[in-house]
Design a protein around this nucleic acid. Sequence first.
DNA 1: CTTGCATATACCTATAAAGGTATATTCCTT
DNA 2: AAGGAATATACCTTTATAGGTATATGCAAG
Lengths: 129, 129
Amino acid sequence: MSLVEIYQCLCDPTRLRILHLLGQGELCVCHFQEILGEPQVKISKHLAYLRSHGLVESRKEANWVIYRLPAKRSRELTANLACLQDCAQEDPVFRKDAARRAKLSDKFSAESPICCAPKTKKTACCPTP
Amino acid sequence: MSLVEIYQCLCDPTRLRILHLLGQGELCVCHFQEILGEPQVKISKHLAYLRSHGLVESRKEANWVIYRLPAKRSRELTANLACLQDCAQEDPVFRKDAARRAKLSDKFSAESPICCAPKTKKTACCPTP
DNA sequence: CTTGCATATACCTATAAAGGTATATTCCTT
DNA sequence: AAGGAATATACCTTTATAGGTATATGCAAG
């Protein structure tokens, strides 16, 4: 994963929002949909792009796929992710994303430690698809 | 100049090398040619791209055009340029560029404070085009 | 005012990326 | 086993970018 490759991943607004959100912890695809307000295909493809370049990792959890920043990060990736978080602080779009994420967390954190593991299997992952 | 726009400027290897070099001070096009070993058109076009997005500024000096990082930089630009310099430290390509630049500086600093202003007009700007 | 040099631009081609629609895959539930 | 939900992929179209060749512009020296 070269430096240029990192920047190529960063040069799309949707991917930036995704990476910014992941800075606060893992998320499943359906929650990305809800927070970003973008269609599933779009998000799925950007996540695939990021994964193919090593900027995110994923794991399967029942019906859902949960994405996170890679456990091991290169010096360059670490530096740039930190820079992104820093820059995102003042941007209204990123702030709103974080706010929407916080609301979702309230809804789910009581029931489960991870975003998409409802206590009972009856509970849907994303209440408002 | 949005954050995404900055990353779009950063996602090309030649532009990265240009910006890295400018971190050490202004340079004219012909010195970019010499240091980067790339054709004039390529460099000129990347510089135009960077200028059109506000990542560099230029001024004319006799026959030459000298580029520099903008005097006023946004928070985002400042942060990302710093991050780039940091990441470039360990990369062999960037290091070689800096070394070549240093050689040129030796050659020119004795004669003139800026890269492309020979003491006498007879002196060519770039000895080995 | 013409020649030469440094730089920029126009134009073309190839490649890559983004976004959309439709469909496939996987896993759970019944 | 079948249906439904979450996610991924195939395929298409549009747009952007990169790089090349050829040419134009601006300036300086004579």
